[in-house]
Each structure stands twice: as C-alpha cells, then as structure tokens.
Computed example of a mutant assay.
Amino acid sequence: MKIEEIKHPELKNHINMIYMHGENENQKAIEKTESEIKEYIKDKEFIISIEDGETVKIPYGNDGNYLVPIFTDALEYKNGMQYFSLNVMDENKEYVIDKLEKYNKKLKEDPNFLGYIINIARVSYIINITLI
C-alpha cells in the first residue's frame, strides 16, 4: 500500500464527535464513540513513524512516559515531519504502513507507554491503551 492510499475520514469523524460530546458533557456518547474507535483501529493500517526499526517515541511529561505518533493520511505525515524538524527530532525518521496490532503487545507491556497520538503537529487525539 502506498502512503497516498492511506485515508481515515471515519476515524477523524469519530475524533470530532468525541470533542463535540465532551463539549456537551455527554459521557455515555463519548464511551460509545471510543468503543467505535477501538473497533475501527483493529484492522486498519496507519502510517507509523519509525527509527531504526522501532516506533518513534514522543516524551510526555518528565517521568519517562511517552506516546507513539501515528498518522491517518499523507498530509498529516508531512505536517508531522515538519513538526519533528522544528523540534530537532526528525533525524533518521522513516515510516511504515502497518496495523497497530503488530506493535501493541510490546508497547502495552511497557508501563511508560501511554498510547498513540494522532496528528502530532496538532495534538489531535490520543488513543490511550484502553482502546488498543
């Protein structure tokens, strides 16, 4: 699969709905949408940033916690690489197109792994470990 073929408008809709439900303080709808996200990401391929064969880790806080960036389309990836460049984190970065489950088991065993961050340049949404 080519990077140009990766598109996830349904996931972006789910993310937008979570923000709307949050504005309305509708926790039940948030939980329903989160379960839809969990189901959606199971069999989809994403653009995953890697370095030396390992997923890139973005520090989160000062206690060793981190997020792994993933991208839902080529434009997000391009913007994410610009973000990495501005923060001097773009050296040796590559990408793969793959399902998250390939990485989930190893990452979930790490207590410092907090989840996947979608669209690192805009901090669009964090898929926490309860959804993977």
Rank of each mutant, 00 (worst) to 15 (best):
5 E>P: 00
7 K>R: 13
7 K>G: 04
8 H>I: 02
9 P>A: 09
10 E>V: 15
10 E>P: 02
12 K>G: 04
13 N>T: 10
13 N>G: 03
14 H>A: 05
15 I>P: 07
16 N>S: 13
16 N>C: 01
16 N>V: 00
17 M>V: 00
18 I>H: 08
20 M>T: 11
21 H>G: 00
23 E>H: 03
25 E>D: 03
26 N>Q: 13
26 N>C: 10
27 Q>I: 12
27 Q>W: 07
28 K>S: 09
28 K>A: 13
29 A>R: 15
30 I>A: 11
30 I>N: 13
30 I>E: 12
31 E>Y: 10
35 S>D: 13
36 E>Y: 10
37 I>Y: 04
39 E>G: 02
40 Y>A: 04
41 I>H: 01
41 I>M: 01
42 K>D: 14
43 D>N: 15
43 D>C: 02
45 E>K: 13
46 F>T: 12
46 F>V: 09
47 I>R: 11
47 I>K: 12
48 I>H: 07
49 S>Y: 01
49 S>I: 14
49 S>P: 03
50 I>K: 05
52 D>L: 10
52 D>C: 03
52 D>S: 11
53 G>H: 06
53 G>C: 09
54 E>V: 01
54 E>R: 13
55 T>N: 08
55 T>W: 01
56 V>I: 14
57 K>C: 07
59 P>S: 12
60 Y>N: 15
60 Y>V: 11
60 Y>S: 15
61 G>I: 05
61 G>A: 05
62 N>C: 06
62 N>Y: 04
63 D>G: 10
63 D>V: 06
63 D>W: 04
64 G>I: 08
64 G>N: 06
66 Y>K: 02
67 L>A: 07
67 L>S: 09
67 L>D: 08
68 V>K: 05
69 P>Y: 01
69 P>S: 03
71 F>W: 07
73 D>F: 06
73 D>N: 15
75 L>T: 12
75 L>N: 12
75 L>A: 11
78 K>C: 04
78 K>H: 11
78 K>I: 06
79 N>I: 00
83 Y>H: 13
83 Y>F: 15
84 F>Q: 05
85 S>C: 00
85 S>D: 04
86 L>M: 09
87 N>I: 00
91 E>R: 15
92 N>Q: 11
92 N>K: 15
93 K>G: 05
93 K>E: 13
94 E>S: 14
95 Y>D: 02
96 V>M: 01
98 D>V: 02
98 D>K: 05
99 K>R: 14
100 L>V: 01
103 Y>L: 08
103 Y>E: 08
103 Y>H: 10
103 Y>D: 06
104 N>T: 08
105 K>W: 00
108 K>Y: 05
108 K>V: 08
108 K>E: 15
109 E>P: 04
110 D>M: 09
110 D>A: 07
111 P>A: 12
111 P>W: 11
114 L>H: 04
114 L>W: 03
115 G>R: 00
115 G>I: 02
116 Y>W: 14
117 I>P: 06
117 I>K: 07
118 I>L: 14
120 I>N: 07
121 A>E: 12
122 R>G: 08
122 R>T: 07
122 R>M: 04
122 R>H: 01
125 Y>Q: 01
125 Y>D: 03
126 I>N: 09
127 I>S: 10
129 I>H: 05
129 I>D: 12
130 T>N: 15
130 T>L: 09
130 T>I: 08
131 L>N: 06
